[in-house]
Amino acid sequence: MHVFASGGVAVPVQLATGIVVGCGYGIFALGIVLVYKASRIFNFAQCEIGAFGAFIALCCVHGIGFVPKLPFPLAILIGLVAGTLTGLGAERFVIRPLFSAPRATLLVATAGLALGFASLEALILGTNFKVLPNIGGPSKFALFGSSSDSNSYLYGWTQITTVLALVGTALAAVAFFRTRYGAAVLAVSQDPTAASVVGIKVSRISALVWGIAGFLGTVAAIVTLAGKPFIPGGESGFYTGTGPLILAFTAAALGGMTSLSGAFVGGLALGIIEQVAANYMPSSVPGGTAIVVFALLLVVLLAKPTGLLGKTT
């Protein structure tokens, strides 16, 4: 069997890396779909709100600014709370005042939010970036091949924890929609007026959804950023094309913007596609991954706007 691709990375390793990265995209996509389902808003700040939560955790770990140095688990906990509060704050101060504005205005507003958070991080952190510690500690083992290969072939508890945490979060999010609150979110998304008539507080549901979205974004950001340098507005952030936002939105579109499981599976698929494309696209074509993702998005939107896994509602 031809195991090694042109890039020299074995196929199982591509798949494993793709799954780890793709779970992150999937969780980001879950947050995007959740907000879209509840209020028909394209939340371009999803990744940046998450990155802001991760940034707060980073500040706690390294003791940046007025924040004292805290142990890592506590820092993560604070980061998660901060990310959730960021989502709530965004809803209260930006989204709710614009509730009746055109949806394109809200899209610009979320993009502005993302720009604001990225600049705020840059203001505090500057260009000398810090590293968020690995979640599972430094221990590594070779999942494929021998451990004498390059370091990138090694997988450790970080990757395993990543996948477990993200899949767990995804399952929890899907389970949430089976509860009364999930039903209330659906009701609000279908008709806010009718929902308020039967006693659902629309603004409270909106806040709930943005809080959850902030939490999901922070989980994904912390887990995918672990062990990597945190560069404001960089890979973690909103600006870079290969950054998670575009992939998360493509994943959400694969699920037709309304299917939670579709979004997560779409994220997984995109993570794998990204790895495979990076290895098989000829190096003479720059931005091969971006081209593949753009083509995929166009094909899905043009041929099947309800998404590959979406329901026709």
């Binding site: 394109a104 094309g241 575009i246 931005g287 971006a290 753009f294 998005l297 166009l298 939107l301």
Partner: peptide
């Protein structure tokens, strides 16, 4: 593209289009 896709989805496509141009065409040696 805008003839088939409109609204928020079109903004998404233009976003990805611009970034794709930057990463591919603008990097051709």
């Amino acid at each position: 593209v805008a003839l088939r896709i409109s609204g928020l989805y079109l903004s998404l496509v233009t976003l990805v289009f611009g970034v794709t141009l930057q990463q591919s065409l603008f990097e051709v040696n």
